[in-house]
């Protein structure tokens, strides 16, 4: 029983990091119909920004990490929107999707070429200790990751619901025509969304990379998981993406123990298929579309 509890907790921990990527994915879709197939690479890259700043340039970690987040906001947020999304979306959703796939490959190959094709050790922010709760052994990094990732998502929700800018962003996502006639600066709101996605990806990157190593190919599964989590959650809701991320984290961890490793990779996909079959609108999704 305590083993099961342990697995649930570590599942929630990785799941909350998946949720960061899935929430960002959902935000981009809502605000600009961008399906970002480079999202996995967006989570892979900031870890290398941290490494480049700390290992190559000698910045202390406490400085390298916030700098990497800022760089991610600029590169994965502002530049991504200006250089990839804006020129491509004019031609439709499909060309944009293809462009994001290409961008993913480009980021991956660039890291491989210019940094290293080998996995790099990545510093953890937290002591690798454990605490015992109700007989279950739980690692401190698991707890810390969960608290930070959930904290970021809760803060995002509070911002979107509790500030005028956040509500303007919601209006832009839910009904851009109305937002425009009320005088909302919809271009700026969309830009904010891209910047937030860059920040979420960077936080996810810093939290998840110590669990593995920093490697150019880290985005391959992460991107798929973010995509599946977003769909499972209903694709158009932050809460849905959160639930989807947590669910996949838990399934992932349970299956690592109870199911042969060979099938483990397939489980998120099986979850996806099951959800699409029984609840096409996603777990928390509503079938109603945009109202214009």
């Amino acid at each position: 029983m305590s083993e099961f509890f342990q697995l649930i907790v570590s599942g929630l921990s990785t799941g909350s990091i998946y949720a960061l990527a899935a929430v960002g994915f959902t935000l981009l879709w809502q605000a600009s119909q961008t399906i970002n197939f480079a999202q996995g690479e967006f989570v892979m890259l900031p870890a290398f920004l941290v490494l480049a700043l700390s290992v190559k340039l000698g910045f202390p970690l406490w400085l390298a990490m916030p700098l990497a987040i800022i760089l991610a906001v600029l590169i994965l947020g502002v530049l991504f929107k200006r250089l990839v999304v804006e020129p491509m979306i004019k031609h439709g959703t499909l060309p944009l999707v293809i462009a994001t796939i290409a961008l993913g490959v480009l980021l991956k190959e660039m890291v491989k070429e210019f940094y290293s094709p080998l996995g790099q050790p990545f510093p953890s922010l937290f002591p690798q200790d454990v605490v015992t709760i109700f007989g279950a052994v739980i690692s401190i990094p698991d707890i810390a990751n969960f608290v930070i990732a959930m904290g970021a998502i809760v803060a995002l929700q509070l911002f979107l619901g509790g500030t005028r800018t956040g509500r303007s962003m919601q209006a832009t996502a839910q009904n851009p025509d109305v937002a425009q006639i009320l005088g909302v600066d919809i271009k700026r709101m969309v830009l904010y969304t891209f910047m937030i996605n860059g920040a979420l990806a960077a936080i996810a990157s810093i939290l998840i990379t110590p669990i593995y190593l920093a490697k150019f190919s880290n985005g391959e599964t992460l991107g798929l998981i973010a995509f599946i989590a977003a769909i499972v959650g209903g694709f158009n809701q932050i809460r849905g993406a959160l639930v989807g991320g947590l669910l996949i984290g838990i399934i992932d961890n349970l299956s690592a123990t109870y199911v042969s490793a060979e099938y483990r990779q397939a489980l998120p996909l099986i979850l996806l298929i099951v959800i699409i079959l029984i609840r096409p609108q996603g777990l928390l999704g509503t079938s109603e579309g945009r109202t214009v």
Binding site: R167, Q170, Q174, N175, D177, A179, I181, T291, V292
Partner: peptide, 10 residues
């Protein structure tokens, strides 16, 4: 405008 013009989830 014509039609429905509210922000549905706000």
């Amino acid at each position: 405008p014509q039609g429905r013009n509210v922000v549905p989830q706000l």
